[in-house]
């Protein structure tokens, strides 16, 4: 395995340093430019605090307080016809702002509009489950916990969904190494054979390009197979095509074309 380099500062570091380069931004429009959205926003603002709201790519994005998430979604579902929660998850901004952004992607089939509801929570904070409003949130919230470690209150069946139950760490965090940490690298060995087997089985080979032409224990050329562990540094033996009937397998005979009859007359 390659040496693990901590990636805590991966978001702070600029990997592209052109002085004149400006990160492209999707243009934002005022909410008042769309009548339907303006009315929806008015209804939400009447009951809850909204930090920011704008329209981006024909979707309204609103920022709310994390403790209001259930109330806002309930209002949108029951009063504003946003009857579907098409997606929800979180984004890791821990290194940037010390927060996660949680987003709920709402769809109204009646109005043909989409709204993205966003809220930011700190690392150790929990969020209220919206599973009672939208059944689709059930697995999404479990996935959010699995991938980011964000706890969800009042969820009916709260546990990991993708990774094994005894997994350590949350893989979608930006600090999580792609090749896995120490726990992930030895997970299957530790679980099946026990920690003592680590020395026997050895570390994972993470180099994709590792090919050793003369290593006949782990590599073989198709059509040029040699016995396991044979020394081929002096060249391989020539391979000829063999058939199982050649060395006289019980009851099996070679098909001889000359001694067979070819039927050409179909009306025979």
């Amino acid at each position: 395995m390659r040496r693990y380099v901590p990636k805590d500062d991966v978001q702070k570091k600029a990997y592209y340093t052109d002085r004149y380069w400006v990160a492209p931004q999707v243009p934002k429009a005022k909410v008042s430019s769309d009548k339907v959205f303006a009315e929806d926003l008015k209804a939400i603002k009447a009951a809850f605090k909204v930090f920011d709201a704008y329209i981006q790519v024909e979707q309204m994005v609103i920022y709310i307080r994390p403790e209001d998430n259930f109330g806002v979604l309930e209002l949108m579902k029951n009063k504003l016809d946003y009857t579907q929660l098409s997606e929800m998850s979180a984004v890791d901004f821990l290194a940037d702002r010390g927060e996660f952004d949680i987003f709920y992607q709402m769809l109204s089939m009646k109005k043909r509009k989409r709204i993205r509801v966003k809220c930011a929570i700190k690392k150790e904070e929990a969020i209220e489950s919206v599973e009672k409003l939208f059944r689709s949130a059930d697995w999404s919230e479990r996935e959010m916990y699995d991938m980011f470690g964000i706890k969800v209150n009042n969820h009916p069946f709260f546990k990991r969904i993708l990774m094994p139950d005894d997994w350590e760490g949350h893989p979608l965090l930006k600090t999580y190494p792609l090749h896995g940490d120490e726990f992930a690298a030895w997970y299957e060995v530790d679980k099946i054979f026990g920690k003592e087997a680590r020395d026997i089985i050895g570390p994972e080979i993470r180099d994709d390009a590792a090919v050793d032409r003369y290593d006949t224990k782990r590599f073989a050329r198709l059509g040029h197979e040699v016995p396991y562990g044979a020394d081929i540094s002096k060249g391989e033996p020539a391979v000829k095509t063999e058939y199982q009937e050649d060395d006289g397998v019980f009851l099996i005979e070679r098909f001889e074309k000359d001694s067979s009859t070819v039927i050409t007359d179909r009306d025979r």
């Binding site: 893989p171 792609l178 090749h179 690298a185 299957e188 994972e204």
Partner: peptide, 17 residues
Amino acid sequence: TGGMFNTYATVQGADRI
């Protein structure tokens, strides 16, 4: 060998098991 899934979630070769 784990193939293109050179990630934390894939066993890097079934011969480890």
